[in-house]
Design a binder for these strands. Structure first.
Lengths: 209, 209
DNA sequence: AGTTAATATGACCGGGAGTCATTATATAAC
DNA sequence: GTTATATAATGACTCCCGGTCATATTAACT
């Protein structure tokens, strides 16, 4: 059944072509890139795009998920080199931050899906997909915090999930600002001091004893 | 010169009528409310709207600034009743959170202006206006933290501004989630436990000694 | 070659932001 | 009171964009 398989493969290739064109343009112009532009970049007609993606938002989400996979690889890599508890927490924290700073367009795209507007236009199951993936990624944070509690380094009277959520949203909140001012602070992380202070304060706040 | 003054007054009244209609509709439908709808609600033609506001986004920003004034009154009121340092920090923290939860549309509208998309469509001086107002509001947070340091309750090796920024963005980050899930947790703040844990950890992290 | 199935196309539609020539209204001049 | 002028309001219109669909093209099968 070589033909069916080739067809399947060609379909995947086409989808990939479209995602690549879309990513390029979303990186370049943000959400305002148009479907016509993406079609032109992919050397396909607009109608064809809609053969493979139900909507512009679905294309958007595909790009977001690509970013999630990148981040996950990075988290795994960074965690391998880190042994000590606080070092592991920082590894997850800065892996997330650096990923977002190095891939600002991914970050913006992802943040966009926290707006009412985006969610209102997107089918519930797509939103659910994003939520599930987000939850999986957050487990990396929950994991290192739980390790810290088990080893007695962190206080045990805080819910690890809530703490992870808090740190994640704290980082995201600062990133919102950092990503907006992309031109400042050449050579080092923009907002470096803010990110450092933030995690220092939190770590001091959860240390046992 | 009574006529010129009356004209001036009528102009302000018209602007107010438009903002009221816009706010109603933004509350109801979010950013997706249309200029035609707003015009109809204000009992004016669409063209008239553009006589008083350069763009939909400028109208949006006017609504945001209204929200800022509301928040500022609340901050002042809450701070009057709070004497002790940590109590004052919490007063500012929860005044901000409750304001945002009670005025979700204001919050969403404001958050929208952290997106690339919105900023790209808005004139630099309007963006600047928002930034300045935001900075002024943040001074309430910076103030109570600085008080805490001066009284020796908080460690002095953290920049009060950075700490305020961190807590503000932490709250905003959690609010992003809380506002999305507006239907849950009737009767108490949604995400109550998360907000509580977040400020507890931070306060423990900055206490002197 | 002819038939059918699968893909691709782009003109077209609906709807929304923003414009502008025209109309209406208020003030000033005589 | 009438006419001229400045000011304000209007809504039909343009342009743009996401999404659709009847038609055309290509590939597969007999």
């Amino acid at each position: 059944m070589g033909i069916a398989e080739r067809r399947e493969r060609e379909k995947r290739e086409r989808i990939n072509t479209i995602i690549l064109a879309a990513r390029d343009l979303f990186f370049e112009k943000g959400y305002r890139a148009t479907m016509d532009e993406i079609a032109e970049r992919a050397e396909l007609s607009k109608g064809t795009l809609y053969l493979y993606f139900k909507s512009k938002d679905e294309l958007y989400i595909s790009v977001i998920l690509e970013g999630f996979h990148l981040l996950e690889s990075r988290l795994k890599k960074e965690l391998k080199g880190a042994k000590e508890v606080e070092e592991r927490v920082r590894a997850v924290y800065y892996a997330f931050i650096d990923h977002c700073l190095e891939n600002k367009a991914y970050f913006r795209t992802t943040q966009y899906f926290l707006t009412e507007d985006a969610r209102a236009n997107t089918s519930p199951d797509l939103v659910e997909t994003i939520n599930r993936s987000t939850g999986e990624l957050m487990q990396y944070g929950v994991g290192v915090i739980r390790e810290g509690m088990e080893k007695g380094v962190f206080r045990k009277d805080v819910d690890p999930f809530i703490l992870a959520l808090t740190v994640w949203r704290m980082a995201t909140g600062i990133l919102d600002l950092a990503v907006l001012e992309s031109d400042t602070a050449r050579g080092k992380r923009p907002y470096q001091e803010v990110f450092d202070t933030a995690i220092d304060v939190v770590l001091r706040g959860v240390r046992a004893g």
